[in-house]
Design a protein around this nucleic acid. Structure first.
Lengths: 342, 342
DNA sequence: TTGTAGGCGTTATCAT
DNA sequence: ATGATAACGCCTACAA
């Protein structure tokens, strides 16, 4: 008995039926475009729907339906505000919408608990499938739900403890490419900036870079910094290296924030044309920076498309062993990585 | 009778109850953490849940519940892969997750039909509320659903034909700021690059810029290009202006892709230090470009936070007239906009 | 502390 | 072509 016109209860099929003067099953037929309703009745019902502002309830529908498909897909990414995640979300959600599915998106921020909590939430919402960029070290907690019929595609990092499709890049190889590029230009003092070693991709990249350095006879412990999470940490770490008696003549930044950080620090010191820089993962305006940023690029578009393909193939009943798609990385030379050693 | 281990049917509360040897209402109590269950039974039920891999079904739960809240929020943005939309999505989804709500995200790409279709989808999924960056010219089609209790917050553009909260920036004023900045440096030949005039924000920006130019006595029809949608179109339009006998000494780019395009074109012509450039909307690495890109920045963070605040206030029952929040823009001088007139 | 009956809005099944 | 009835998985109300 609220005096303010509170939200009126939404009309149901029964209400529509009453207005149209038919049984509510007939309304259901009309709403679902089922045959067996005369044109006259169909119009009558459509009119009632219009006047009442009736809106079909997918939740209720889904409860009763045979296939139990919600038309919902989950996308748990590292950070939907970040370029890489956002690009993936875009291509996956395009594929989803082409199939009439909606996408539940969320950011994990490398927090394992958040991943488990959000997966739980998505499962209880009965998503048809899940795209996951893991924050956990082990996804075996998902095995049961996968067995119960919820396909999961793991992206960016290989799944651990879980038999699932995945889309990754060869991080070690990509990092090695960056190092080889610099070695070939004569660099021997090469700094490495990496993220937390607990993150699988970060670990693989650092290992790949260090292995390449060793092979090239350019290994130097004081030029390797890991565990860098922010722009500030990246700048500080590079700054410390540049303050050494024998500073690096080149830097490999193993994540996009670190590439940005390195570019800033070099620029702040006026060294952007003296010290070479190669980043892992492409950046939006890398070509406009001075010098242009040389990077080992991941093909985000392909990654997203492939992930969507795998996910929807499973949803279409495609059975078979998990598929591991590895997308190629490519070195994009724009200037910063082509500065020769002094 | 499929030979392949197809998705087993998910266990229900009844199955759990059978295993635990209790009634299924007791299971419901345990699942919802309701009081009135002995510790012993609680543990028994928890064990059964574990062995069966039971997962609560929110859809079914919600159907019977009194409040009919789905804990779902829709976010219809221009393009979740684009920086501006992605930043908004991030802050809104943070606020949503803080409240235990999940976010359905989708991109509209300025397609009015897509907006209407997706809104319909979200409504039939019974989202509790909706954040909308409109692609339509008129949102009156939403009035009924708003009246039926679904709060809508319109972002980036003022709502048309709909009484709803909104979060916008003063586009005309922002564009005027950019022009004034250039006028004050002595520029009189100022090029303007704008998006489709049908887009409300684009229209307002162009009008604001042109008004400021007129006031400054620097109006020049041949230096105004609208309807530019892509990097290529932006570059072409600016290129044409620069090829004029009396080319512009400064450019205002009214959208971030156009700012990028302008920076590219100027750079390609080696004019990046001769022709001034001010963009509307900030860009990721604007400080690393040479020269740094001067922009009129929109405070995306505040926009997202405000939008979330408005939406969740409505969901918390806050009643009252629609609120129109206008977030201030700010000129961020980084170099490109401070090049003086020749 | 625990259980039973009924219904949320819809679709499946079977009847008319 | 249309309708009555049961059921989906769960929660509310009430009873034991």
């Amino acid at each position: 008995m609220s005096p303010t016109a509170g939200p009126r209860a939404r009309p149901t099929m029964r209400d529509v039926a009453a207005v149209a003067g038919v049984s509510f099953k007939t309304v259901s037929r009309v709403v679902n475009n089922e045959p067996g309703v005369s044109e006259a009745v169909r119009r009558e019902v459509a009119g009632a729907i219009e006047t009442l502002g009736y809106r079909h309830d997918r939740g209720a529908s889904n409860l009763r339906r045979g296939d139990r498909r919600t038309g919902l897909v989950g996308a748990l990414l590292q950070d939907v505000g970040n370029d890489f995640s956002a690009a993936l979300l875009r291509s996956v959600s395009d594929a989803a919408h082409d199939r009439g599915a909606a996408v539940l998106a969320a950011s994990l921020d490398e927090e394992a608990d958040r991943e488990r909590a959000l997966v739980g939430d998505l499962v209880s919402r009965r998503v048809d499938g899940l795209l996951l960029m893991p924050a956990t070290q082990d996804q075996s907690y998902l095995a049961r739900d996968v067995a119960d019929g919820m396909p999961v595609v793991v992206i960016d990092r290989p799944p651990v403890g879980l038999d699932a499709d995945s889309v990754t890049v060869d991080n070690a190889a990509g990092a090695a490419t960056a190092v080889h590029h610099l070695l070939s230009l004569g660099h021997r003092r090469i700094g490495v900036l990496g993220d937390l070693d607990e993150i699988a991709t970060a670990h693989a990249r650092r290992e790949g870079a260090e292995a390449a350095l060793r092979e090239g006879g350019a290994s130097a412990a004081e030029l390797v910094a890991a565990g860098l999470r922010s722009d500030a940490q990246g700048r500080a770490a590079l700054g410390a290296m540049l303050d050494l008696a024998d500073p690096p003549t080149a830097v490999v930044a193993l994540r996009n924030v670190l590439t940005e950080a390195a570019a800033r620090e070099l620029r702040a010191r006026g060294l952007q044309h003296q010290v070479a820089l190669v980043g892992f993962d492409d950046l939006p305006m890398a070509d406009l920076v001075d010098p242009g940023l040389t990077v080992v690029a991941q093909d985000v578009d392909t990654m997203g498309t492939e992930a969507a393909r795998l996910l929807f193939a499973r949803l279409d009943g495609h059975d078979g062993p998990p598929e591991q798609v590895v997308v190629a990385t490519s070195l994009v030379a724009r200037g910063s990585g082509e500065i020769p050693a002094r």
